[in-house]
Write a protein that binds this DNA or RNA. Structure first.
Lengths: 119, 119
DNA sequence: CGCTTGTATAAGCTATTGCTGATATGGTAG
DNA sequence: CTACCATATCAGCAATAGCTTATACAAGCG
């Protein structure tokens, strides 16, 4: 819903500070925040990059050594990424393989583009 | 710099767990994380959305009421967004106006697209 | 000039986060 | 079966984030 009917006309002719607020879709906000907070962490970001670089799927055992935290921490991080819809996971034998989702690919690409653009 | 030399496709041998690690560019990582952590917060995300919705620039006084935290908190949040390169700020009279950068526009658009795409 | 308004900064307190170590689960091999 | 490997979950702790209040700075106006 969008609220307007703002009272700022009352501040006088020349004194309106700025534009009226337009509300933010709180459902979109929740979804986006889950994604952003999931990516916005050293460990999880690096895991995501590594998973994205290896198109074949990566298992936890490999990632653990790479990012320098415990197996438990990696598992927790991956669960969080999964919950946020940033990776898929499939089981194969006794290993679990993680792969990036479209969301991850799109966001990392956007970030890459931005860095390239104005630096 | 993409490293590959992936040879494991065959998990049939059941020995190689997965692909070798390819290191992540730590400079890119720092930049991206600054952006992601800046956006990945209720208050700052909503500020960013509101700033983006109002193309004219928004001043702090307007935002304060909208997001429901103190003036101080809004100011701190905006400073953080500025530091992350997500908003520009210009002073006009005694007010300060914030506007979104290209980075913000691109990321929010990507997020919007993603939500629209697979839901 | 000093008052008022708009914004920024400082200090401090609490809630949350992200780790570690220990333990549980599930699959595989001997 | 038991032992073992890869991964997940639990519990607890240390670090950080984000808020509040109080205060400082800056600009317009009486």
């Amino acid at each position: 819903m969008v609220e307007d009917a703002i009272t700022d006309g009352a501040t006088g002719g020349a004194e309106t500070c700025c534009t009226p607020p337009g509300d933010v879709d709180s459902d979109a906000m929740a979804t986006d925040l889950q994604v952003l907070t999931a990516m916005g962490n050293d460990t999880r970001y690096e895991l995501l990059r590594r998973i994205s670089n290896a198109d074949d799927g990566v298992c936890v055992c490999d990632l653990e050594a790479a990012v320098g935290v415990s197996q438990s921490a990696v598992s927790q991080a991956l669960s969080r990424l999964y919950a946020a819809g940033l990776v898929t996971r499939r089981k194969e034998g006794s290993w679990r393989y993680y792969e990036p989702t479209e969301t991850t690919a799109a966001l990392l690409e956007t970030l890459d583009d931005l860095r390239g653009a104005h630096e």
